[in-house]
């Protein structure tokens, strides 16, 4: 016999997940425009692998397939992996990454809702540690030859020299690291025609696409405005502060916000409810922490973009954050009674 309540609001996990997927579309469109349709191949590849892996693991765990496959969480993970991996990475790299995400990061921890780490970010970290070279080969902006991209993804022999280009983040770090060249941020980003003036040619438009999708998600009530705001504000403030101190060695906020995975991180990664903080204050701390760590890793670390590592580091802190940011419950707040009487 069922107990009360007997009525529920029409809402479901899958509705949330499919809205997230829809919100990624503008960013993907910009990606295709600037970097070719290869990314679509990767998304398809990732989606098929994710669904197959999810189905296989669910079957092994004796869970109802239809129910969980429909929840859409595997697809969200797959799309995020496709969008964070280089779009000209060989096919097996993305397949392996999705397998790591679904099998290890998600189901070994207990499946949907139980994973302490963001599966897509686990996949990114594992793959960049395991195959740093392949994970650092990004397509050049404006190179939209689908055949070449197809060969890069599926071909046995990869001739990449023509289409590979360092991302603005990579270029910036590499050049600033060379003391003898006396390079400045402006010198690297501004003088080079291949880079856009804001976040790197092409990349800034992809970031804008993510921003648009993210704002729609906030409007739909799928994600809270606090997380992206805390993320972008922290990243903007810290990069702005350092740029003020020495603009030749530290890139400013516009660059940091519109390059790499900043927008994707702010609206689609830091907002993952499962692995993120849940309390209101906790969400702000969580997102700000990711932004801060991202900037530190981008500026001083050994790997190109820091979002993935920063996310995992903050994922570890989530139980502590959630525990320490519990709101006082009804009637247990101090000094809240209007006439001064203490409870």
């Amino acid at each position: 016999m069922l107990n009360s309540p007997y009525i529920t609001k029409p809402a479901s996990v899958s509705a949330v997940m499919f809205k997230v997927l829809a919100a990624l579309l503008p960013g993907i469109a910009a990606y295709v425009w600037f970097f070719g349709a290869g990314i679509l191949l990767q998304i398809a590849l990732a989606s098929i692998t994710a669904l197959a892996a999810e189905a296989a693991v669910l079957a092994m765990r004796g869970k109802p397939l239809g129910l969980f496959l429909k929840d859409g969480s595997a697809l969200v993970t797959a799309w995020l992996i496709a969008l964070t991996f280089p779009s000209i990475a060989p096919w097996w790299l993305i397949v392996l990454g999705v397998l790591v995400a679904i099998v290890v990061a998600k189901h070994l921890y207990g499946g949907l809702g139980q994973n302490p780490f963001n599966p897509a970010m686990v996949a990114f970290c594992v793959m960049i540690v395991a195959y740093p070279q392949l994970m650092s080969q990004w397509p050049a902006a404006g190179f939209t030859d689908f055949a070449a991209e197809f060969r890069a993804i599926f071909g046995a022999d990869r001739h990449l020299d023509a289409i590979v280009m360092a991302t603005p983040l990579d270029a910036l770090r590499t050049v600033l690291r060379l003391p003898e060249t006396r390079a400045t941020v402006e010198g690297v980003l501004g003088s080079n025609a291949t880079f856009g003036n804001i976040g790197g040619r092409g990349w800034e438009w992809v970031a804008l696409g993510y921003l648009a999708g993210g704002l729609w998600l906030i409007q739909q009530g799928v994600i809270s405005w606090r997380v992206p705001t805390a993320f972008l504000a922290t990243l903007g403030l810290i990069s702005g502060a350092f740029a003020l101190v020495d603009a030749t060695q530290y890139a400013g906020p516009t660059f940091h916000l519109f390059t790499g995975g900043a927008m994707l991180g702010a609206f689609f990664i830091a907002t993952d409810p499962v692995s993120g903080a849940t309390t209101v204050r906790g969400q702000i701390i969580f997102a700000a922490g990711i932004a801060l760590l991202t900037w530190i890793i981008r500026t001083f670390g050994a790997y190109p973009d820091g979002i993935a590592f920063a996310t995992l580091l903050m994922n570890i802190c989530v139980p502590l954050i959630d525990m320490r940011t519990q709101r006082p419950v009804f009637g247990r707040k101090t000094g809240k009674t209007p006439d001064g009487r203490q409870p």
Binding site: L108, V129, A130, Y131, P132
Partner: peptide
Amino acid sequence: PGFLIAILPPGAFFVLGLMIA
């Protein structure tokens, strides 16, 4: 191509975790 992370410290945790499981 190798799976570098297995030889690096994180790999040790992964594999040991799987063995304990």
